[in-house]
């Protein structure tokens, strides 16, 4: 597998009036083409900071990020669908391309095709308010895919959904990502979600976030995320990660 990204000794401190707060500390991580990495950590541990740094939305204090591909393109899918209510579904999906001034005919055709393939073909001229939560999340994903990213960053992409839709949508999104052969880094605090989706799980400690452990997920019968939850090795991973997270229920 080709290496896409190399993170070495990455640290980030936040500056506040009351002093310096270390958010992440000495993170080392290699990202390979086609991987699905889930980063698990308790809330507020600094995993979002890591994702923001990778998306170039935040700077870091020390360390190195090596890109092993020229002009490596990163797509970011947020927790909220953040669709613009005054734009049609098609225009929403084309937003990234419009900003990057790449509204070429072939790119538009590519986005239309994605919308068509993933069950949104009848909604091109509709507005976000007419769509279900799961559909909106799919549009948000397609909006990110539209710019043809090499690496897809997912920031708890399902946490705004209720439990039922969450399972269904994660199944959908997983299928789309696999079909489009994308490399993914997803952050989540949901251990089950991480095991059911990821090929590799990085467990972060509490703030400042350090890498506590890394698991290669090798399920007995890997399938789609919903079925993966029934896998016999699922609970083994779950128990280990739960212990690693060291959650204090006081």
């Amino acid at each position: 597998m080709t290496k896409l990204l190399e993170i070495k000794n990455l640290s980030k401190n936040y500056q506040t009036l009351k002093g310096e707060i270390p958010a992440i500390l000495n993170i080392d991580l290699d990202v390979y083409d086609g991987e699905f990495i889930a980063i698990v950590g308790s809330s507020g541990c600094g995993k979002s900071t890591l994702l923001n740094i990778l998306a170039n939305l935040d700077n870091y204090t020390s360390g190195v990020i090596n890109y092993h591909k020229k002009n490596l393109k990163i797509g970011y899918m947020l927790q909220e669908d953040a669709l613009f209510p005054w734009l049609t579904i098609l225009d929403n999906a084309l937003l990234g391309l419009k900003i990057e001034k790449k509204l070429t005919e072939s790119n538009i055709a590519y986005v239309k095709n994605l919308l068509q393939t993933y069950g949104l073909g009848d909604f091109l001229d509709k507005y976000p308010s007419e769509l279900s939560g799961g559909m909106k999340q799919r549009v948000a994903l397609i909006r990110t895919l539209a710019i043809k990213p090499d690496i897809l960053l997912l920031d708890e992409p399902f946490s705004a959904l209720d439990y039922q839709s969450r399972l269904a949508v994660s199944n959908d999104v997983y299928k789309i990502i696999k079909k489009e052969h994308k490399t993914v880094i997803m952050i989540t605090h949901d251990i089950a979600e991480a095991i059911s989706l990821a090929s590799r799980i990085v467990v972060l400690s509490k703030r400042p976030a350090k890498i506590k452990s890394i698991y290669e997920v090798k399920l007995a019968n890997p399938s789609d995320p919903i079925s993966n939850r029934q896998d016999k090795k699922f609970t083994t991973y779950y128990d280990q990660i739960w212990r690693d997270l060291d959650v204090n229920v006081a």
Binding site: L57, Y76, L78, L95, I99
Partner: peptide, 23 residues
């Protein structure tokens, strides 16, 4: 204005002007 939408535009490297006109 919803900060998520601003973050989204930032992730596409939108300029100030683009943020103003599109969002």
């Amino acid at each position: 204005i919803d900060s998520h939408k601003i973050k989204l535009l930032n992730s596409f490297n939108a300029t100030k002007m683009q943020k103003l006109t599109t969002l």
